[in-house]
Design a binder for these strands. Structure first.
Lengths: 192, 192, 192, 192
DNA sequence: GATGAATGAGCTTTCATTCAT
DNA sequence: GATGAATGAAAGCTCATTCAT
């Protein structure tokens, strides 16, 4: 999941992610990360500036990883609908396959612990912009109503996030049928 | 916002909410809450069992408050569409007027710090069930496609949450037009 | 056990004794005493100056009570041996019947928490002096070796205390036979 | 006194012992131990699990130390009387030379703060068993009356403890003569 | 580069005591 | 005389971070 980092950093980031999801940020101490990852605190501080730095790198790493997964296969010459639906399907699959990363982003995208400059990455360096372009195209092709693509992306992203969240919280059960309904509803919600 | 609590508890809950949103849970120490609320730590512990207890009461209080606000004016004999759209409009207004409560629920509904029994309140004691009933009616009246009301509520809730979130993060700007578009999209997304 | 005190004081002293033996002095808080005794903290402070005062009164009260019990029936015109053995038997019975008072004195007679002036009560206001007089008589009657009565009292008191202590700690089992052996050994240890 | 421990642990244990005797357990705070021992609280918690752990290790350490001192020179082929009297003399010397350890055991051997498993050490890992064997031999050799060796050990231990205690409390003065009288009385008390 | 013992500020929580009612 | 809410200093303990080895 953290391909841009060296082995030590990967071990730290993966261990930290697991601990934060399992126990909460405040219960995830450096010494616990050290013990679970097998890296001494001294070494952790050699590769990361601080605990805050680890969390922020984690955030960046997950957003980057998610971006690649979501955008996988959307730069084709197929019709927009196929490509857009593929993106949303990618997002659903990703969230269910990597629930820790999904939960982490959900839980900490509002947190003051994540620096504002890093947060921008979610919106600007992530998959938002490419998707917004797809929406803009759909508007141009008169497929979608003339609304701000940014707005539509957030709206649909929210739909998906909450259905997945409910599934992870065991409030809903996700089936193929549900996924199809979700994707169809997204499309229909803004169709002309 | 916390009408069921006495004055001391209200002061503590309101102060805590403000601090958590401003600084993060882990940076919100009891002594800071005491100093800012003007209640001594001893008194805080007279009214709350622990820090965890404060956070959980905060959660419960906000969910209850939000529930009343969202459901305000939906038990009329108007057509379903009016009542459902009123509920969503209530939610949007509420989230923009009380952004701290909104952010808190968003950030901590996944947190292990909130006890599972308290989390259930969100789904079961909150506004979800009444809204699900409205959706079930709409399905029966052939207004909506035959999908699980729980699923539809979550989907639409997610749409609204993410649009509001983007606005609070200054990624989007919300106008009346945006709100109308959002509500219309929700309705259209599952309409037959 | 605390006949010289009023009802409120008695309730406080008895509750405190029970709690200290069960939980330790440091785990016996004023609020716990208040809750268990049914007396409010305010009232406790009306009748006692401080927590330290309660403990010291407790000490005095137990020592006084024990003194009466031990000396019961020794001011007769029977031979010294009968009277002395009766005193020791009284002590054994007392310790087994009121183990909490016994333990408390054992545990706290060294404690800096008990004021020095109060501690003197054990030696001087308690049963030590009367017993020392009996020993002095026994020395005079050439029953006992010519040793300091104070020394002999402490020596025999120690014997009894440790046998009782071992019984309370379940290291020894006390039977009538054991008690007879103990008393006989005390007598024999200093006999001429 | 605490040879099995490293330097930091020794400093902590010795400082703690001194403070507890001087001020009482509840007045001996971790920060006071840290300040007086020159070890930071963090380090103390690196070497001990908790305050309770320190106290229990203290207890174990003293009991072990005392055991060696008391049993020193009793495994010879001299007559029993010499060896037994040497043991008691060792105990008296020890208690007067290391009064803090002596007082600590006296004061806290009843305390719930000391775990039951640790308390057993006093009776079973300490010097009691070896001494009980000596007594059993003395019984077999018809030197002593046929009584439970455990009982006799406790009885004599109590005699010594209380004479020493009285001396430390300045109620008695200990001289060589007193010590001789004490040892002789112990022997005589159960002699046939 | 790697280690983990050492630090001490700061955490949550308790508790003896006071005092308005 | 009785109450118990209120106080805040101080308790035991944790933990991000440093640095000698």
């Amino acid at each position: 999941m953290f391909d841009n980092y060296n082995k030590v950093q990967q071990a730290v980031l993966e261990t930290t992610l697991g601990l934060i999801i399992e126990k909460e940020l405040q219960a995830t101490s450096m010494s616990l990360i050290a013990k679970k990852s097998g890296i001494s605190t001294g070494s952790i501080y050699h590769y990361f500036e601080s605990k805050e730095d680890i969390i922020n790198e984690l955030y960046k790493g997950i957003v980057t990883f998610n971006g690649h997964k979501v955008l996988d296969g959307i730069y084709t010459d197929e019709p927009i609908r196929n490509r857009l639906e593929r993106a949303w399907r990618n997002l659903i699959t990703l969230s269910l396959e990597y629930p820790q990363g999904f939960q982490f982003i959900e839980q900490y995208s509002f947190s003051p612990y994540i620096k504002d400059e890093v947060k921008q990455a979610v919106y600007e360096g992530g998959w938002c912009h490419p998707l917004e372009k797809l929406y803009a195209e759909a508007v141009q092709q008169k497929l979608f109503a003339d609304m701000d693509p940014k707005f539509m992306v957030q709206m649909h992203y929210g739909s998906i996030v909450y259905v997945v969240k409910s599934a992870l919280n065991h409030y809903l059960t996700i089936s193929d049928e549900v996924i199809e309904g979700l994707i169809a509803s997204c499309w229909q919600s803004v169709s002309l």
